[in-house]
Amino acid sequence: MTSQIFSPDVQQPLDVVGIFVFALSGGLLAVRKNMDIFGICVLAEATALGGGVVRDVLIGATPPVAFTNMGYFLAPLLAGVVVFFLHPEVERINSSVQTLDALGLGLFCVTGTAKAHDYGLGSVASVALGMLTAAGGGVIRDVLANETVSLLRWDREIYAVPALVGSTMVAVLIVHQHLTTLTASAAAMTAFGLRMLALRYGWRAPRAWHRNGSRTSEE
């Protein structure tokens, strides 16, 4: 199966680290929204696992792995507890959290695309589900927190675009039968690199040309 790009001894620790960091971002938003411990943990779980759960349901990989591997389910709870007690410290190392978040983005767009392909989806659908795996949890987080979805905000650095690039690379590699641990790692690192460059240089997706609106808040 192409989704088994990395050996289980490598894949699971990488997954857990990625899930934990995604959960930290959900927990921090919950703190900013003045939620209690339950809300913090719910938002942490939704952010960390939402994209993968929706993907698994859509492709028929049920029950989702988030509910069959307790490590995946417990990692966000741990992250929620960490944020509850130590959120000022977590906020102070936010740049490190963003770096690990970018690594998780790269990993999950690759493995999500490969898993969707294993379940019989074509290249375009696999790419879409690879993006969903990487970025879907953030969308669910924002909806639950009553926030404008970050992926749709022009004033945020690009997030979905790096995932799109990484997922597309994987789909092309699968078509040409060149998907290996090395090439998959290259795709993940490409997505990671693009996200980090976006954070460093403030890259944003272009907006429509010749817009009529001129309100300061939209400029």
Rank of each mutant, 00 (worst) to 15 (best):
V42K: 05
R156C: 00
E45P: 00
P13G: 06
R32Y: 07
S7L: 12
W203T: 04
V161Y: 05
L29Q: 10
E218M: 15
A75E: 05
Y159C: 11
G27I: 06
Q4N: 14
V65E: 07
F108A: 01
R141Q: 10
F22C: 04
G106D: 03
V10D: 01
Y72V: 00
E219H: 09
V175R: 11
D9Q: 15
C109V: 01
L199K: 10
H176R: 11
G26W: 02
I174M: 04
A145I: 03
L107G: 08
G71E: 15
F192I: 01
V53M: 12
V90E: 11
V54T: 07
M189L: 15
V172M: 13
S123L: 05
H87E: 10
R156I: 00
F85I: 08
L199H: 06
L179C: 03
A46W: 03
A125C: 08
P63A: 02
P162F: 01
A145K: 05
A125V: 08
M196I: 12
N146T: 03
E218N: 14
L14G: 07
Q12I: 14
Y72H: 13
V21K: 04
M70I: 09
V16M: 14
T133A: 13
H210C: 12
L164S: 01
F6W: 13
A187S: 13
F6V: 05
Q12Y: 13
I59F: 06
M1R: 14
A30Q: 08
A163C: 10
M70R: 12
G26Q: 06
M196G: 01
A163Q: 00
S126N: 11
A171V: 01
L29S: 07
F67P: 01
P63W: 02
H176V: 00
P206W: 04
L121Y: 12
A134D: 00
T190L: 11
T216M: 13
V21L: 11
S95Y: 05
E218F: 15
L182Y: 13
A61F: 04
A66Q: 13
A30K: 08
T99K: 03
L24H: 07
G193P: 09
L58H: 03
G26D: 03
G39A: 09
F85C: 06
Q98H: 08
F192D: 02
T190Q: 10
A145V: 02
R32M: 04
V172A: 15
M189T: 08
C41D: 04
D101H: 04
L199Y: 09
